[in-house]
Write a protein that binds this DNA or RNA. Structure first.
Length: 849
DNA sequence: AGCACGCCGACT
DNA sequence: GTCGGCGTGCTC
């Protein structure tokens, strides 16, 4: 049949299809005649791919095949999955851009931009319309496509005599009566045909109805509904049920909701059983129809949310809102940086801006770094926007996530809240995209495609003419650089609302603390400060960014630390479990008595973790209620929220935690924040170490004194003179930025350079080294003077989960240039048969470990 | 990523 | 004699 089509006079069309595999695409497929009306960019299609069938997306249609693809290679599309393209032109452009800039395949980019489970198409139900039934009864058959052979060629033979697929589908439906058939059931009878496209063709002719997420149902979930039968009055119905009280109750309910009510809802409202419903249907008083089961997750908004939406804005907030508004209305689509200290009321500004957007009939996306922060924002957003908000993230149940997606896609709700994936929300007319805490590393996905939510948000805003707002108390260095250079607009909220003072910050020099008293964990100053809070009944928050009891187990005879067998790191001592734990692969083993390296029995615990800090505090302050808050303590479901709310309610005096503490959540009763190892991260071999330290310290400092009480912050550091510490102490972003940007410029790091990190993995170290050598050589050859290549070198994690790793770092002055060089290098590797087997490419890496 | 094809060890 | 281990190559 494919040959018949290709030999006909008709022009064959080809589609370029992006498939969700990590191989360079897209792939070309012939468009069979039956799918011609459907084959347009953005359409989801089922395609044969090697030995399997995949759902891909048409990204282009062309009358000829691209270079290098021959007719013999191409196979036809199998089916089209939707009545219209699922992906908008913007969505296609955005995912294509993302694939290009992250060096992943377009199909993978599309896959990550859609919620999982969207391809469950078999649940859609096809129902015959009266027109369709009549069509079958009259035995009408469509005109067989008349075939005209090209001049000089013989006809291929008579047209197929078999009844056409459309007739078979319709007849099948007639046999099955009113409630129709699921596409998956139809597919069993019409094997090898494009059942989905066929159903939609019949729908276009008015012969069937398809109950799907396009027409109304959410994720294919429909339910039966009841309404008064035509021409039956309430009085007549009551008269006919005079001796059946349950049925009468149902009559009252249904005639009160005469536009229809879901069967389950009607039964609940009338407090009756299925029997009563069945009886009314049998008596012909009640008719049934099907409605979409939807909006089950939309909670009716009740109550307030800390006054969100009701505050009078401060003059700074008003000015900020005004600037955002004028960008929105003026159509100037330059991104805006909203720089506001912790507690300056940024959220209120975003929400008012979103409200304006919604009132003008357009949509907005509000992004937070982590799923865990969505409830807080949702709560406040609902106070301002009511039920015009939907949350979308991967932690939700599958059905709910799909439902939210379709609600957004169908324009039923104009505001989406979520983590980085929310940037792909299928809202029709996005006019505002807000990233809260834009500096947060969680916006970057750490698996392929390694995209940064901020970059995608900026690109989407550009494509849609929307305004991107990047909000932060400590903007990323790249972001602030953009503001300084004028690429972004800049808005500042310099003061805390309600004129709460910024906390007082003191730095303790741990070198002196050790010299004077031998203390390495808690300085006398910090201990004294905690004691004061306990006396006054106030709360303390202590940060130590390392979980476990001790960082490592050191042998005092041979000097080795007990290592992880699978990773190139030392194991952490966990006293609770009486074990050594790897924080990278979760390997566990009992604490040894003797050194596994030399056998000596002089193992010593080095470095402090949260468990040890908690133990020390309990020894010092036996009466204090002290709780730990780290990945170990919050592993159990709900523990996270339980601990935080107990602390908020004042049931705890001291909370000891890792950087998990720094995110979100206000603690009004906290008047002391202690940061035990404020400069721990400065030792990491990473160009962002100072930036991360400054951000963490500033965020933690912001946790002090948010209520009516003034706050104090105590930083313990061995390098108190480092600019990140000094700037955090002075709470002076500008001075930090001035130092940091100079460092980046001098050493040619972002934003003055673009980086790509290539990590090769392998079981055998010599083979891996050879692969990495070839890659680095290819990059050097392809790059010439344009880029600098570092490595191959062992990254900090030279071995991880049993795999050796080698890193090649490429640096150049523009992202595009570095990507081009790497692409060319990879082609050279392939040509030489030296393509690394297990290669991960990280464009703009956030860390180089 | 899958999946198929292909070439070498421990088993019904 | 086979079942199956995962190395290698390919997917329009």
């Amino acid at each position: 049949m494919a040959t018949g089509a290709s030999r006909s006079m008709k022009q064959t069309l080809y589609s370029q299809v992006a498939v969700p595999v990590p191989v360079k695409g897209p792939f070309s497929y012939e468009v069979p005649e039956a799918l011609l009306p459907f084959a347009t960019p953005g359409m989801r299609v089922r395609v044969p791919f090697g030995g399997r069938r995949l759902v891909g997306t048409i990204v282009a249609i062309s009358p000829s095949l691209p270079d290098g693809v021959s007719d013999a290679q191409v196979r036809p599309l199998l089916d089209c999955l939707d009545p219209q393209p699922l992906l908008s032109a913007t969505h296609l452009a955005l995912s294509g851009w993302m694939a290009e800039t992250t060096m992943s395949s377009w199909g993978e980019a599309i896959r990550t931009s859609l919620p999982a489970g969207l391809e469950m198409v078999g649940q859609r139900r096809v129902v015959l319309t009266p027109e369709g039934a009549a069509w079958v009864e009259m035995g009408r058959e469509e005109v067989v496509q008349s075939y005209e052979p090209p001049p000089g060629e013989l006809p291929l033979g008579p047209p197929r005599a078999a009844p056409s697929d459309r007739r078979r589908m319709l007849e099948r439906l007639v046999e099955h009566g009113g409630k129709g058939l699921k596409l998956s059931e139809i597919a069993k009878y019409l094997e090898g045909t494009s059942v989905c496209a066929l159903a939609y063709s019949l729908m276009a002719e008015g012969l069937v109805r398809v109950e799907d997420e396009w027409s109304d149902g959410i994720g294919g979930r429909w339910q039966q509904a009841l309404r008064p039968a035509d021409g039956v009055s309430r009085e007549a119905a009551l008269a006919a049920t005079s001796r059946a009280p349950a049925q009468r109750r149902l009559v009252y309910v249904l005639w009160d909701h005469d536009s229809g009510l879901a069967r389950t809802a009607a039964i609940r409202a009338a407090d009756c059983t299925q029997q009563a419903v069945r009886a009314l249907i049998e008596k012909g008083l009640v008719a049934t129809f099907r409605v979409a089961a939807e909006d089950t997750s939309a909670p009716a908004w009740t109550g307030d949310a800390d006054g969100a939406g009701t505050f009078d804005l401060t003059s700074a907030q008003l000015a900020a809102l005004e600037q955002i508004e004028s960008a929105l209305i003026g159509g100037a689509s330059r991104p805006l940086v909203l720089h506001g200290v912790t507690g300056s009321g940024k959220t209120e500004v975003y929400l008012r801006a979103a409200l304006g957007v919604v009132e003008r009939g357009r949509s907005a996306i509000l992004m937070v770094p982590e799923i865990g922060l969505t409830p807080l924002l949702e709560h406040r957003a609902r106070a301002v926007l009511g039920d015009r908000v939907v949350v979308m993230h991967s932690g939700m149940a599958k059905g709910q996530r799909i439902e939210s997606w379709w609600r957004a896609r169908r324009g039923r709700v104009p505001v989406v809240i979520g983590p980085r994936s929310a940037v792909f929300a299928p809202l029709p007319d996005v006019h505002l995209i807000v990233l809260d805490e834009e500096q947060d590393g969680a916006y970057k996905q750490d698996e392929s495609p390694r995209y940064h939510g901020r970059q995608v948000a900026l690109r989407r805003a550009e494509l849609e003419g929307a305004v991107a707002v990047l909000g932060s108390a400590t903007p990323a260095v790249e972001t602030f650089h953009g503001a300084r250079s004028g690429s972004y607009g800049y808005i500042e909220l310099p003061e805390r609302v309600a004129s709460r003072p910024l906390p007082e910050v003191r730095v303790v020099d741990m070198r002196e603390a050790f010299q004077s008293s031998g203390r390495t964990l808690l300085s006398a100053e910090l201990e004294g400060a905690i004691a004061e809070r306990l006396e006054r009944g106030e709360q303390s928050l202590l940060l130590l960014n390392r979980r476990g009891f001790a960082a490592s187990l050191l042998c005092r005879v041979c000097g080795e630390r007990v290592p992880c067998p699978d990773c190139a790191v030392s194991l952490t001592v966990h006293r609770q479990r009486r074990s050594l734990v790897c924080h990278y692969c979760d390997h566990r083993q009992p604490v040894p008595i003797a050194c596994p390296h030399c056998g000596a029995e002089q193992l010593h615990e080095m470095g402090h973790g949260t468990q040890q800090l908690q133990q020390s505090l309990e020894a010092l302050f036996p009466a204090a209620r002290c709780q730990r808050f780290d990945a170990d303590e919050t592993r159990r479901r709900g523990a996270h929220g339980r601990i935080l709310s107990a602390f908020s309610r004042g049931e705890l005096d001291i909370l000891v935690g890792t950087q998990m503490l720094a995110k979100g959540h206000d603690f009004p009763g906290v008047t002391l924040v202690g940061i035990v190892g404020a400069d721990d991260a400065l030792g990491l071999p990473d160009f962002r170490a100072a930036e991360r330290t400054f951000q963490l310290l500033t965020q933690m400092a912001g946790r002090a004194g948010r209520g009516d009480l003034a706050g104090t912050v105590v930083l313990q550091a061995y390098k108190p003179d480092h600019y990140a510490i000094r700037a955090a102490m002075a709470q002076d972003y500008d001075s930090f930025y001035a130092e940091e940007i100079e460092f980046r410029r001098r050493l040619a790091y972002p934003p003055y350079a673009a980086l790509i990190a290539c990590v090769c993995r392998g079981k055998s170290l010599p083979a891996l080294k050879e692969e990495a050598d070839w890659l680095a050589a290819a990059v050097r050859e392809a790059g010439g003077q344009e880029v600098r290549v570092f490595g191959p070198a062992s990254p900090v994690l030279a071995r991880l989960r049993g795999f050796h790793r080698m890193q090649v770092l490429i640096k150049g002055d523009s992202g595009e240039r570095v990507r081009n060089v790497l692409n060319e290098s990879l082609e050279r590797c392939v040509a030489a048969g030296r393509m690394p087997r297990d290669l991960r490419i990280d464009v703009d890496p956030l860390n180089l470990m």
